[in-house]
């Protein structure tokens, strides 16, 4: 049980406002995940911040509203089957700079984890989302593009999920075959925003003119910074 939030800035002039625009979306997801919060912030490289406690504490501690950048993906966590620890916080990082946040739960992650471990992959947590992230990393390392790698997740991972993924140049989303877990996308002027619930996006400047939609099940959507 979790909340996800994401913002990609396509208009270079708006990049200094990334943090100020993302922070309220992120904080609005707190009731979906009060246990811990985390964020991957892309700009000059990627920074990952994660800690136990509500999103408001994290955004204050890192002064998110003052930060610029190209993209941020964030997560508020209500832990299900693994511990409330910093290691269990999202985002999980695939390779050096691919970030993943997940809302939902995978029903066969123990098997996929065993398969990956047998090939030498190691894990930092007992979290199901980390398994998906490591799987994605393997496919990216094998040469797949982000859309291709994300699109192949349903071949291996069973269960329910909204996955929001970012790289230094792209943001992408995928929902499970049943469209069980929520996601709302708003494509505005100079930005693309994602949240688990619409109200988190409702204060964005220009939201009334934005193209707002729920991604269809199994459709991979990608956006370039």
């Amino acid at each position: 049980m979790c909340g996800i939030a994401g913002l990609l800035i396509t208009d270079p002039d708006q990049r200094p406002q990334l943090g100020a625009l993302l922070a309220p979306i992120f904080e609005a997801m707190t009731p979906r995940g009060p246990d811990s919060a985390g964020l991957a912030l892309y700009g000059d490289g990627v920074e990952v911040h994660k800690q136990v406690g509500p999103a408001t504490k994290l955004t204050a501690d890192m002064a998110l509203a003052d930060r610029g950048g190209t993209c941020g993906i964030a997560h508020t966590r209500m832990a299900t089957e693994s511990a409330v620890t910093t290691e269990g916080c999202h985002p999980f990082m695939a390779g050096d700079d691919v970030g993943l946040v997940h809302n939902g739960s995978f029903s066969n992650y123990a098997t996929v984890r065993r398969d990956l471990a047998a090939t030498g992959v190691s894990f930092d947590s007992d979290n199901d989302s980390e398994v998906c992230c490591r799987l994605l990393a393997e496919q990216l390392a094998a040469g797949a593009g982000l859309a291709e790698a994300l699109g192949s997740v349903p071949d291996r991972m069973d269960g329910f999920y909204t996955l929001l993924v970012a790289t230094p140049s792209e943001m992408a989303i995928l929902r499970d075959p049943a469209g069980c877990k929520p996601a709302v996308v708003a494509e505005g002027s100079g930005w693309v925003a994602v949240a688990s619930e619409y109200h988190a996006l409702s204060e964005l400047p220009g939201i009334d003119e934005a193209h707002v939609f729920e991604p269809a099940p199994l459709e991979v959507h990608t956006w370039r910074a």
Binding site: S105, S107, N108, A110, T111, D158, G159, F160, P177
Partner: peptide
Amino acid sequence: ACGKSDVHNLEPE
């Protein structure tokens, strides 16, 4: 009931 879309995704866990 175990959340599987393929019966072969049942696992010891």
